[in-house]
């Protein structure tokens, strides 16, 4: 069963983000949520991830599912090395973390702290963390933001070649990205968020 957003209501900072929003995601594939910045796409991902709760309504099909999240920002622990940042989601299985680092082309960089890595390398550590965590759903919130074309291709290749998370939800406001990666593109507008 896929996930379903049913009659969702959410206000943030006095603004209505969702007003009776209904969406039904399939069990697998990459669903691309395409829309302008600030229309509420990231809030929707945060609700699916369980980071913020709905004022009203429900999200069906997420309970008991493992959800990995590649945030807009890298969100790496600055006091942990690249390897520790990955092993932390692997119940501290360091060898496996090393494997994931090698997978994203960062073998031998495991002892470096995030500030010692370039922007592209930090992004790859964040990708490795999300992929290592695995699970049923992978949420991707503008995953290529701030990356040059070369790093973007590397990152995209890593995300879509990995056999993990049958359902991927990609948020973007870049039409080219949406067409390139989405199996389905949902045009969204708002706030309040609705399917266009």
């Amino acid at each position: 069963m896929g996930i379903e957003v049913r009659n969702a209501w959410k206000r943030l900072g006095g603004q209505a983000i969702f007003e009776g929003l209904n969406l039904k995601f399939p069990e697998q594939g990459t669903i691309c949520l395409f829309g302008a910045s600030g229309c509420g796409k990231s809030t929707l991902l945060n609700c699916i991830a369980g980071i913020i709760s709905l004022d009203q309504g429900e999200i069906i099909g997420v309970s008991g599912k493992k959800i990995a999240y590649l945030f807009q920002e890298d969100r790496l622990l600055p006091w942990a090395t690249a390897q520790e940042n990955i092993s932390i989601v692997l119940q501290n299985r360091e060898m496996e973390a090393e494997k994931w680092l090698a997978y994203v082309g960062l073998a031998g960089e495991g002892n470096k702290y995030p500030r010692e890595l370039s922007g592209g390398m930090r992004r790859r550590v964040a990708i490795a963390r999300a992929l290592a965590y695995g699970g049923d759903i992978l949420l991707l919130d503008e995953p290529f933001r701030g990356l040059d074309e070369e790093n973007k291709n590397v990152a995209a290749n890593l995300i879509w070649k990995t056999e993990t998370a049958p359902l991927k939800i990609l948020v973007t406001h870049d039409r080219h990205e949406a067409e390139q990666f989405g199996d389905e593109i949902w045009f969204l507008e708002g706030p309040p968020l609705k399917k266009g």
Partner: peptide, 21 residues
Amino acid sequence: RNLLEMADCYRFGKWKTFQRV
């Protein structure tokens, strides 16, 4: 707050979030 959200999303749990964040 971003790190706390990350910890929440990756199900660190209370003790691990305290220890690592």
